[in-house]
Design a protein around this nucleic acid. Sequence first.
DNA 1: CTGTACTATAAGAGCGCTTCGATATTTATT
DNA 2: AATAAATATCGAAGCGCTCTTATAGTACAG
Lengths: 357, 357
Amino acid sequence: MNKRPTIKDVAKKTGLSLSTVSLVINKSGYVSEKTREKVLKVVKELDYHPSRAARGLASRTSGNIGFILSEDHFSRAEPFYTKIFLGTEFEARNHNFYILLTTVDTLSKKELAIPRFLLERNVDGVIIAGKMDTKLVDYVERLDIPLILVDFRIPGRRVSTVMIDNRKGVRLAIEHLAERGHTRIAFVGGDPGHPSISERFQGYRETLEELRLPFDENLVVTSEVALRVEDGFHALRTIFEREGKPTAVFAANDAMAIGCIQYAKHAGLQIPRDLAVVGFDDVESTLHVDPRLTTVRVFKEEMGALAVRRLVEAVKSKSRNIVDTYVPVELIVRESTMGRTPGDGVPKGVEIPEMQD
Amino acid sequence: MNKRPTIKDVAKKTGLSLSTVSLVINKSGYVSEKTREKVLKVVKELDYHPSRAARGLASRTSGNIGFILSEDHFSRAEPFYTKIFLGTEFEARNHNFYILLTTVDTLSKKELAIPRFLLERNVDGVIIAGKMDTKLVDYVERLDIPLILVDFRIPGRRVSTVMIDNRKGVRLAIEHLAERGHTRIAFVGGDPGHPSISERFQGYRETLEELRLPFDENLVVTSEVALRVEDGFHALRTIFEREGKPTAVFAANDAMAIGCIQYAKHAGLQIPRDLAVVGFDDVESTLHVDPRLTTVRVFKEEMGALAVRRLVEAVKSKSRNIVDTYVPVELIVRESTMGRTPGDGVPKGVEIPEMQD
DNA sequence: CTGTACTATAAGAGCGCTTCGATATTTATT
DNA sequence: AATAAATATCGAAGCGCTCTTATAGTACAG
């Protein structure tokens, strides 16, 4: 390790004290313009960069933000939360923070493991994404570290959140189906313990009511534990084995929607002629299934970025205001509801997905 | 911030000196079993955890590993490198390291920006994934920080790497196609500046030769800049506009393969009857396209994990051995080469993808 | 019984910064 | 002109660890 310049070297070369140099670097306190410039010039000359560890120790800040995700959400291919994470990462750079990612095992009944970055005081703020053991939320709050929940909330609890406008998303989807003449619209859900999922179900019921469409329990499956493709497949099969078939299905997320498409094909149904399918989230794969999936777009990266912005504000201002942020949604109409003959290629104007090696 | 216990508190409570406590915590030097236990007991009682910043400053280590990815690779939905990243993350936890992720803009002709974690000496080792400006590699090496390249290498340069066995992967794919009677196998490529991509092309040529199949330039497109779905679409169209159509196509990655499927459908071709398609990487979406894509599986998480393991070794042993690691590949045969009638649902035994909300 | 090697603990000097309080200087206020 | 307030710089005390060096006890060889 070749010797890097320290703040001492800068002080020596400028003829100023350590404190003054430090003031310049931290843009805090009173420093004359002249000295400021002198310091900055020398900093550049020496290519000086303060050591993160030293600053951290002296100022008890880390320059890191912790991102906590449940192992459950993470361990499967996680296009949704991964996108949120990438969004945080990108935004964090703008604020000179790094994101420390960690997962927490919430499934096994072992004692809750506290992320190491909390124990070592190695983060200035914490993001918790998706459903998470309340005990961990408690723990973070007791540390008095700024906290924000993304795509998660705890009923009756005052914590800052960044949430999807789930109700609106569902309304857009159901209205779209209703406009196309559907009256028997199935709902395929998943873990109702996840606030976003339960909100989607509530939105479904509300919208049916608004539109004066009948609610039929035979058209609903929410008891399935998970939210995976295969769960969508099985859930829709369950519905088709009951009385009174649907002509459209709304799935609480895209993975399940894709499972619905698979079941429909399996059952020899033409999409969207015999069955229209709508998903939620707008993950990558929705563009590659055949037919492409109509879905509710969620701005996942934006959610992460927003969370970081709120957190950085809180860290810098040392305030602990509670802020609830809703991110908007959009309905993306594709062939799974708007019918073209399957397999007729790439119509002009239809988006071509980006994806790479 | 409530006061957390420091090493001093542990020393006081045990009646030992700071140094002894430190020795116990770092498992270094001579400490009697009795003292060790006493210290650990008190550590537990106080719920003491050493401050990362303080250790960092004193020992000039950070407990972090830097992960550098080109902006180019990252900014699109990046199932491939994202998986590698997640693999590093998981493995890093086992070694009590955190991964600091950053991207570098390699496209614009601006001056190369050095990741902040390098300037601030905030990482103990560095992973560079995918194609990257050589200057950055030089920079890291000059810092004398352990470095490992993943899915990237620089010809004639001695740097540790974790590479895909690209040649073998291609051979498996081409042999599979040849076994099924194909003799006119197209190659759809991408950025030949990326070592993995150029190796795949070399593997293609070698295998054709081994199998005594003719090499026909009309069946090859490698000039396209990128590796996206749309590039696959256009590349295959280009080939079909030439003399002598292929009966099979090997795409250098899955995204392009999916583009090829889209083109084939667009052109009214039945897959695999009229055209067999094989990809490379085995990303998530290959399971959701119709027909499912035959592809070469790459153990992406494993690549990340291996890189971390190598790096941690290097950090701990302070050695600078050069190690080249190859990760194995597998051919995953699905319907894009093995023909079932499209749309016949989910055959038993065929994998159902995991994916979630 | 002295010397050497090993084992076990301690003392204390940093690591490279931030920050508090002190001091000095200038500018505004009455 | 006297005082208060704002501006500018500095000295020094840590922040909470690690690590080198010192000290002392113990074991064993000669």
